[in-house]
Design a protein around this nucleic acid. Sequence first.
DNA 1: CGCAACTCAGTTGTGCACAACTAATTTGAG
DNA 2: CTCAAATTAGTTGTGCACAACTGAGTTGCG
Lengths: 149, 149
Amino acid sequence: MASLRLDDQLCFGLYAASRAVTSLYRVVLEDLDLTYPQYLVMLALWERDHRLVKELGAELNLDSGTLSPLLKRLQTAGLVFRNRQADDERSVRVSLSDAGKALRTKAEGIPDVIGTAMNLDDAGVARMRAELDRLTESVNAYREALAPA
Amino acid sequence: MASLRLDDQLCFGLYAASRAVTSLYRVVLEDLDLTYPQYLVMLALWERDHRLVKELGAELNLDSGTLSPLLKRLQTAGLVFRNRQADDERSVRVSLSDAGKALRTKAEGIPDVIGTAMNLDDAGVARMRAELDRLTESVNAYREALAPA
DNA sequence: CGCAACTCAGTTGTGCACAACTAATTTGAG
DNA sequence: CTCAAATTAGTTGTGCACAACTGAGTTGCG
């Protein structure tokens, strides 16, 4: 039987944990002049370059209202450029500049720093990640049913 | 050995889960005309009324830069009022209005809805909550050491 | 073909999160 | 007692998250 007590609620724990992690990233990413969402976009591009805005949005679950200004800032910072597709003028392809590619080296140590801070072994990380993914999917499915897109 | 792959990272799972939950709350809270952070403040006040802004900040880990405008909106909505303390003119005490107290009834069913959406039994919730709290504390301690307040 | 429905990126407006700052007040060391 | 340091709430500015919308471009049905 769930209550209205703040302490009982998983959602608050999630909210607090997410903000704590973001705030650690803020410190760690200061050196790269990136925010955490910008870092996520760079991660996606380091994994696979030359992506459409739509593809980035699908991977990160972000819409153009968030991505467009963010990408514009990354472009201003000289890390990416954007080109309208010739074959479909609606689409925009995002590519890493040399500076954007080079930044990867500076980012190489970050996952270990975060891992250390979390104080979890690989198995713990994998298990928690799996639980969170399951939670996300379950919650999204429920919301979808409540308020169809 | 941590990598820069998006899929491996616990932090992204956390970020995605937190946003999924918030987005479910958006639907559920529509009826109460509250945002999720506003709901958290109301939860805190339903538990204990007549709190100082400082106390709310400590419980929710939010500073006055976030709380002041949020509380102003709750006041405009007629749910709370704010009074400077007589014995310490720096402090402001936040109290529920009758409408604010009454809103609790409408909120009563929310935790169960969220619980259902998460599809976790009580034990699962408790375990996950404990893990998240441990993670938050560990990460905050690390950040504190890296960048002392 | 013609055009209505859809797709994609971008814009606008609201609210949160947070750093950096201000202003008013209180506290406490000397 | 005095005044410098600390405390408290609020303000300002930046960036994210997201709903609602716009406008350009594409698709496909009749």
